[in-house]
Design a binder for these strands. Structure first.
Length: 577
RNA sequence: GGCCCGGUAGCUCAGCUGGAUAGAGCACCAGCCUCCGAAGCUGGGGGUCGCGCGUUCGAAUCGCGCCCGGGUCACCA
């Protein structure tokens, strides 16, 4: 119906332009639902946009549009000029009838669109290296990336969720050395640096303590899980493993164990990846070497100070970057470029990288480098998100990854449900800091906790259906649903809100901003809960059969939309709570 | 210092490719109710949209300058 109205308006605007001998393009006018219901169902700003172009006052143009709209009485009930030149439009009666029928007909597909139909999209997210448990920041990224993937799928895309991790570089070596140190310490063959020394990067680092050597690396991983892994290795391989640094057994065991835990955590969050890829595979397949050769072929590579550099300044960036270190070991940038080129070779039309704010510096280098290698660089997008802080009892807990005092997702999920976790994590727009209010997350009062508030609104529709069933009242379906009896202001408000859902999904998906869906769901629940609660004035189940049927219809529509919205966020829609 | 993100009600935050009187939740105040599903409903107070200038019919939204907070500027990932 909105589409029909837009078509109609465009036709009139075309005629108006032709009349002025203007064969230019139609203006991109807005057709939006006004905040104030007195302003009608839709407001159009086309007259304001055309005032200068046509040399007429906006209100005069608006008058012409209003007159022209009279040609479609079954679509437009009334139209009037308002304010500086808006055209406020009220739709003709049968509109809500069609809406309810459509919602019930489309069910789980209601709200979905086709703007990404047939597009192969890859969403790369989490991508945490297996050096420790997933923390809050990863959790935000996991939920954000998964919701974006769900939105893209709802817009018709064929989506691949991918997790890429670095397992080849120095960081993994440090991890192995950390485990080895804990192993030797447990055997009494090495000494552990004191907590104070570990915590202070400036502190003097002892060579030995009480005659035992200190083997723990200066920048080692300090978390307690390192000792656990060391203990596992001891259980499996005994006490006689060589103390050599180069021994890969510690690194490999650590990677394997930690990765198993990461996957468990992902699973607990309800997140499933289609593809896991890693750095070492890229080396083994020769992709890294190949990309270096190709960059060299483009004249973008040079040697200096025994290192191999990318001439990024030639690509419009502010400095050059090292691709291969003096030690002969590549930096992360090189395999990253190789990886991103592979993404396009694998046939993706859109590549979306979800990354934390600490990684954004890297992105332009990767994008420009693959652009130079003839990849469509404008089809790589970066979705950046800021960090997460945790607030409990009014205290903000600082997250420090280096030190061992971070809060893990596992720890959080022991205290709150996944649904609450996920809802809270996508509530805020990604570019902003996220203050995770643990007190509110733990709140079980459905009225206060926004996640429960939405879920409860959904569960309520089932409660009403159960009650109807007890009373022997049938539920309407798409054929029988009839909105004519819905005349209360609250009911029209609900219908209007429901009608907005497809636009919300389209906008959230196209802008990669799932938080819009969370806000929308909260808003719809905020209309539905009071409506049901205020049963004295408008009970769903009454003696009036047609009114009851209409209200059951709206209950089903609310249920459908809430369920669809929650699904886009990966949050469950319970039938009872 | 350069670059990126943020600054909107007491708190946490929405606000679309500029639109009409800037919104929500929590907290606070007052009245009503105990109802299909549970401490609920209705109304109210509370704002220099960080500051200034500019762009125009119109700016929280766009541009420029500054202030404050966070991030980042490695041969770390």
């Amino acid at each position: 119906m909105k589409e029909a109205l837009r078509d109609n308006l465009e036709r009139h605007l075309r005629a108006l332009l032709d009349e002025h001998g203007d064969d230019g393009a139609l203006p991109e006018f807005a057709l939006e639902v006004p905040k104030n219901p007195d302003h009608g169902d839709f407001a159009c700003n086309a007259a304001l946009l055309l005032a200068k172009r046509l040399g007429n006052p906006p209100r005069a143009i608006a008058e012409r549009l209003v007159a022209a709209l009279a040609d479609a009485p079954d679509l437009v009930e009334s139209a009037e000029v308002a304010g500086p030149g808006f055209v406020n439009i009220r739709l003709a009666g049968a509109r809500w009838h069609d809406l309810l029928r459509r919602v019930l007909e489309e069910g789980p597909r209601f709200g979905h669109g086709d703007s990404h139909a047939d597009l192969k999209c890859q969403v790369e997210f989490v991508s945490a290296n297996p050096t420790g448990p997933l923390t809050l920041g990863h959790g935000r990224q996991a939920v954000l990336g998964d919701s974006i993937a769900r939105l893209l799928a709802a817009l018709g895309a064929k989506v691949t969720r991918e997790y890429y991790f670095n397992n080849g570089g120095r960081q993994m070596r440090v991890l192995g050395e950390s485990v080895r140190a804990r192993y030797l310490e447990a055997l009494g063959r090495a000494a552990s640096p004191s907590v104070d020394v570990l915590a202070d990067a400036e502190a003097d680092w002892p060579e030995e303590i009480d005659g035992l050597p200190v083997v723990f690396p200066r920048d080692g991983y300090q978390g307690g899980y390192i000792s656990d892994i060391a203990a596992e290795i001891r259980g499996e391989h005994g006490d006689d493993l060589p103390a050599k640094t180069e021994d890969a057994i510690f690194r490999e065991a650590a990677e394997k164990t930690i990765f198993v835990d990461i996957r468990k955590t992902l699973d607990a969050m309800g997140i499933e990846f289609d593809v896991y890829s890693n750095e070492i595979d890229l080396y083994e397949e020769g992709k890294v070497e190949a990309v270096l050769a190709d960059l060299r072929g483009c004249g973008l590579v040079y040697e200096e100070d025994d290192a191999v550099w990318l001439r990024a300044t030639k690509l419009g960036l502010d400095r050059d970057r090292v691709l291969v270190k003096r030690t002969g070991e590549p930096t992360y940038l090189l395999p990253d470029i190789a990886y991103h080129r592979e993404k396009f070779r694998r046939g993706f039309d859109r590549v979306i990288d979800v990354q934390g704010a600490d990684h954004i510096e890297q992105f332009p280098f990767v994008r420009e480098a693959i652009g130079a290698l003839d990849c469509p660089k404008d089809r790589v997008e970066l979705v950046m998100h800021q960090f997460v802080t945790l607030t409990e009892g009014g205290e903000q807990l600082k997250q420090s990854t280096r030190r061992a005092n971070f809060v893990t997702i596992d720890e959080l999920l022991e205290q709150i449900s996944v649904d609450v976790f996920r809802f809270f994590m996508v509530q805020r727009k990604a570019e902003g800091h996220l203050d995770f209010d643990l007190d509110l997350a733990k709140e079980t009062d459905w009225k206060k906790n926004p996640a429960y508030y939405v879920q409860y609104a959904h569960a309520r529709t089932h409660g009403i259906e159960r009650k109807a069933s007890e009373m022997g009242v049938p539920m309407p379906d798409a054929q029988s649903v009839d909105a004519d009896a819905l005349v209360l202001q609250e009911e029209i408000g609900l219908l209007k809100k429901i009608a907005e859902f497809p636009d919300v999904v389209a906008r959230a998906g196209e802008s990669r901003e799932p938080h819009h869906v969370a806000y929308y769901a909260r808003d719809l629940a905020g209309l539905w809960n009071p409506y049901v609660q205020d049963g004295n004035r408008h009970r769903v189940l009454s003696d009036d059969a047609s009114l009851t049927s209409a209200r059951l219809g709206i209950a089903l529509a609310v249920r459908t939309v809430l369920a669809n919205a929650l699904d886009l966020l990966g949050v469950s829609a319970p039938e009872r709570m």
